[in-house]
Design a protein around this nucleic acid. Structure first.
Length: 635
DNA sequence: TATTCAATAT
DNA sequence: GATATTGAAT
């Protein structure tokens, strides 16, 4: 029965097994029989309370009043007389939530029954008990506070008495509240977006949301709150975000703060206070051709844009003093001038600033923090590149006017296995990068102008030296050469046969993976390389997955679909010398898809995942799992 | 004690 | 449907 009610249940055979199981696994509630060999329900309950502080429900065919009372007084949170019906079990989760409160309430109730409606007994005693219990609660409330809101109480009582086979909890006549999780709220926003703020009324929103179990009243209440929020935001002229909330008015930190503002509200923002912000929003709106209507949230719509880019949550700056320039917090970003790179490279074991190069995918996947905090593409690829774990023993190189030492920028670039790809590919992918990129490239060691003139990055040998440099070295390092018209002319050769090439392939035929050892071991850069460039352990990697054109198309059309099984896109399967093309946006989008593995719909905080993702996630979950967490029960 | 939340009353 | 009020939770 419990399982049918979506509880997670672990059944055990006897009290000793129960205690053992409790020690190995976390539970929310224990349900036990009373009369058992070796240890009875009382004793078990006592043990459980002492050791685990968990609520215990006792069920028994024994309907002796004395037994029931003794159970409850001993500390059981509830006593059920067999036979048990599903309805009796439906709301036992409340005991897991309420704990002690549930206990005292139960005791009060059973006491109330005695004094109040003691008349009935017989075969249906169990149900009578439940029934009486709930009306007792209402009775008590009425005497306590009837002056304030008699009607409310009356309705509550009515519901309690009539709802025998319905939604009502025998021990607690209050309806479970709808929790407006981020995902639920996003669906709400979606509806408003679709309907239009002006026309959005509870009924239509409810209809569009199409979430079972939610009522018009629920929506109305939420809408009311939402409108108040909008008004407040418009008045204050501030947009809440994590970045600002430190100093900002606390009142701005509601759950709405995580979301998106209707365009109309944004237009009301104080120009003098956040001029850059407004500018940005308008630019964005036009960029994505929302036609002035719609809102920020609508910007999530483009399916080929990674939702993270549009998250308005600030990224953490752990390990870095560099600002990020992602959209969401861009209005707060300082002027983007020449980028100052940090002097030191952080420890390679610190994944707070993960790289997007091949070897680091696994790190991204296995550290969810990264997934939330990373600014993709338009962040600062060169800075990311700088955090290479490879190749720390190279001498200093002189590229252009910049002198770079081991820990500096060029390292990641030189070490093409890693991060150059991220930088190179992310450039044409995100139009918003242009502004920043210019400043960044001005001080680039490579004198590159992407998309304008010939580009040669990271390559260093005698026949293809970096422009404006005196670099000569007999060894070939990874690199990439792009001609005037933007075609890939050349990708750097490997170091010997070991596969350091950033990209192995031919003209117009990019293979994502270095050819190196991928064919033999199936992982990239695994345990290979010179002593100074050891590569990554394959323990951290997912097997590469072939990424053909149909996959690309499928993926691009699939953003509104539920997250797929873990896959690592964008990597060659190692079967051919050159396989397939890809777009970095696919990689990036895939990151967010992967990020959805956890977070099964529990209430999410402001710093949670991108909205698009949440919608995906949301679609998978039945309403009750989305809103009300299922409890684990030991029976 | 003040604030927030969602439900409920008007 | 919009708004005001309520009670619980924090």
């Amino acid at each position: 029965m419990l399982r049918a009610l979506k509880y997670g249940v672990v059944p055990v055979r006897n009290p000793l097994d129960a205690l053992a199981t409790l020690r190995m696994q976390k539970f929310d509630l224990v349900v036990t029989d009373l009369h058992m060999p070796v240890m009875n329900g009382f004793e078990l309950q006592k043990e459980v309370m002492e050791e685990f502080q968990l609520p215990v429900i006792i069920m028994s065919a024994d309907d002796e009043e004395s037994v029931i009372l003794k159970s409850l007084e001993n500390g059981a949170v509830f006593y059920m007389v067999k036979p048990i019906s599903p309805n009796d079990l439906k709301n036992v989760w409340q005991y897991a939530v309420a704990g002690k409160k549930g206990r005292s309430a139960a005791i009060e109730e059973i006491r109330g029954i005695r004094g109040d409606s003691s008349g009935e007994k017989g075969s249906d005693h169990h149900h009578e008990y439940v029934h009486s219990a709930s009306s007792c609660v209402n009775e008590e409330k009425r005497t306590t506070g009837n002056t304030k809101d008699p009607k409310r109480k009356a309705l509550a009582k009515k519901a309690g008495n009539e709802g025998h086979g319905e939604e009502n909890n025998p021990a607690d006549s209050k309806k479970a509240k709808v929790v407006w999780t981020t995902s639920l709220h996003n669906r709400f926003l979606q509806a408003i977006r679709h309907i239009g703020l002006e026309k959005a009324v509870p009924k239509s929103i409810l209809q569009f949301m199409n979430v079972p179990g939610i009522t018009r009243e629920n929506v109305a209440s939420h809408l009311q709150k939402y409108r108040i929020f909008l008004k407040r935001v418009a008045d204050k002229g501030a947009v809440p975000s994590r970045a600002l909330s430190m100093s900002a008015d606390r009142s701005m930190r509601s759950s709405f703060a995580s979301g998106q503002l209707p365009f109309s509200v944004m237009q009301n923002l104080h120009q003098q206070q956040y001029p850059k912000f407004q500018q940005q929003q308008q630019m964005l709106a036009s960029m994505f051709q929302q036609g002035g209507r719609g809102n920020m949230a609508a910007l999530n719509a483009p399916s080929n844009i990674d939702p993270f880019l549009f998250s308005n949550r600030a990224t953490s700056n752990v390990g870095s003093s560099l600002p990020r320039y992602g959209f969401g917090h861009s209005f707060k970003a300082p002027n983007v001038g020449p980028v100052r790179f940090p002097d030191k490279q952080g420890p390679s074991s610190n994944f707070n600033l993960p790289q997007l190069g091949h070897g680091h995918w696994p790190a991204l996947i296995s550290h969810q923090t990264n997934l939330r905090e990373q600014s993709f593409g338009n962040g600062n690829p060169l800075y990311q590149a700088n955090r290479s774990v490879f190749d720390i023993d190279k001498p200093k190189y002189n590229f252009g006017s910049m002198s770079l030492s081991n820990g500096d920028v060029a390292q990641g670039v030189m070490n093409a296995t890693n991060s150059l790809m991220n930088g190179a590919n992310s450039i044409p992918t995100y139009p918003q990068q242009n502004e920043q990129r210019q400043g960044l490239l001005t001080s680039s060691p490579f004198n590159c102008n992407f998309g304008i003139s010939e580009v040669l990055m990271g390559t260093a040998n005698s026949s293809n030296p970096p422009p404006n440099s005196s670099f000569t070295n007999g060894t070939s390092y990874a690199g990439i050469k792009i001609s005037n018209d933007g075609q890939l002319v050349f990708t750097g050769p490997s170091h010997g046969d070991h596969g350091y090439g950033l990209l192995a392939g031919k003209n117009n035929n990019i293979s994502v993976a270095p050819k190196g050892n991928i064919g033999t071991s199936g992982y990239m850069t695994q345990g290979e390389g010179p002593s100074s460039a050891p590569g990554l352990d394959n323990a951290n990697q997912l097997p590469p997955v072939l990424f053909d054109e149909s996959t690309v198309n499928q993926h691009e059309n699939a953003l509104s679909m539920a997250p797929q099984v873990q896959q690592q896109y964008g990597l060659s399967n190692g079967s051919g010398e050159f396989s397939n093309h890809y777009g970095s946006d696919i990689l990036l989008n895939n990151i967010s898809t992967l990020s959805g593995i956890s977070d099964q719909g529990q209430q999410l905080g402001e710093d949670d995942l991108g909205d698009l993702f949440l919608e995906q996630n949301f679609n998978q979950l039945p309403y009750h799992e989305c809103v009300r967490r299922t409890k684990s029960v030991l029976v």
